[in-house]
């Protein structure tokens, strides 16, 4: 029951990055983590997958133009 919203067609895949993946992504994009788009810590998806403030989520969107698009969001305090 609890994971139902993750299957909704409007909700893309969210995965939590590990520490090493986080550093790799930030280095590759050449930015600080504050420069990423944000996601609130009380967002229903964040609560569902159990992400903590300070985590970076990898979001794999289905895109009309690119087919698949990967982006990142920082979980806010």
């Amino acid at each position: 029951m609890k994971n139902d919203i993750l299957k909704h067609k409007l909700v893309p895949d969210h995965t939590i990055l590990s520490k090493t993946e986080m550093n790799k992504v930030l280095k590759q994009l050449n930015i600080h983590q504050e420069q990423l788009p944000k996601i609130k810590s009380d967002d229903p998806v964040v609560k569902d997958i159990g992400a903590k403030p300070g985590d970076i989520l990898k979001i794999t969107r289905k895109s009309h133009t690119a087919g698949k698009f990967v982006t990142y969001r920082l979980v806010l305090e």
Partner: peptide, 30 residues
């Protein structure tokens, strides 16, 4: 969405704030 028999992947609304509240910010963007 909590009701039995309702399709939990296709059922939707045109209220963007409600989508954000129930399904999260990424769903709100979509």
């Amino acid at each position: 969405l909590k009701m039995e028999g309702v399709n939990k992947t296709k059922t939707s609304t045109n209220d963007i704030h409600e989508v954000e509240k129930v399904l999260g910010i990424e769903a709100g963007r979509n």
